[in-house]
Amino acid sequence: MRKSRLGKVAAMAAIAALALTSCGGSDSEADGDKIRIGIKFDQPGLGFKDGDNYTGFDVDVAKYVANELGYAEDKVEFVSAPSANRETMLQNNQVDMIFATYSITDERNKVIDFAGPYFVAGQDLLVASDSDINGPEALNGKNLCSVTGSTSAKKVKDNYAEGTNLQELPGYAECVTQMSGGTIDAVTTDDIILAGLAAQPAYKGKFKVVGKPFSEEKYGVGLPDGTDKCKAINEAITKMIDSGDWQKALDKNTEGTGYKPNSKTNPPKLADTCA
């Protein structure tokens, strides 16, 4: 009988689909003695997946903190945490903490907890090394690149230089590529992200961060609401700063760009940030 041929096809398809999804799902399965840390995978200098290696300042701080919490390096599992998904990943318990250029804001603090900050970034400009652009006011008539849907480029246009030409691309990597081709005069976002971009091997010595941050973004450690880890994490960060490892990690990841973080706010002071 060919009665159930259609049914069979559907069943087979369903099984195949299940098999595929289960191997996709296993990546983020909680594993008792491991800690899952959300980082960016595509942010060179901060959180970057290079084959099986993870590099960047966020990654170094995350590893240090995890180590202080009792998780050796082989017990750390890095998970990709794109900006749009960060709160949900914490709320759904898909990660234990997030180090992903995650600014502490009141809005976010309502649904999740923050430890830190472990770094205070500020919006700045990345320009060619021989450029005479020295601040956002100098951008009139220049071409400025930022990521689609980000507010940072609009901020420049609204507050500093109305005559700026904006190009919006899917990622900062594309912006830097455009600037290396000479069609873009400046890229804007948080200074440390810019420094990380400029530190990439192909661009060494070609770009500089202007060094006049015009906003303040406190990078915190994202934690699930009501966590008990906040204090321990803050202690770990303080220890990292005091021991000089924090500075070392920062220098290593921005090497060759001459980048100096805003010294008024960095290294950050962690006074009772845990609620």
Binding site: L169, E174, T177, Q178, G181, G182, T183, I184
Partner: peptide, 9 residues
Amino acid sequence: VLALYGQLG
């Protein structure tokens, strides 16, 4: 956008 304009001008 990236190659034709960005790289080749």
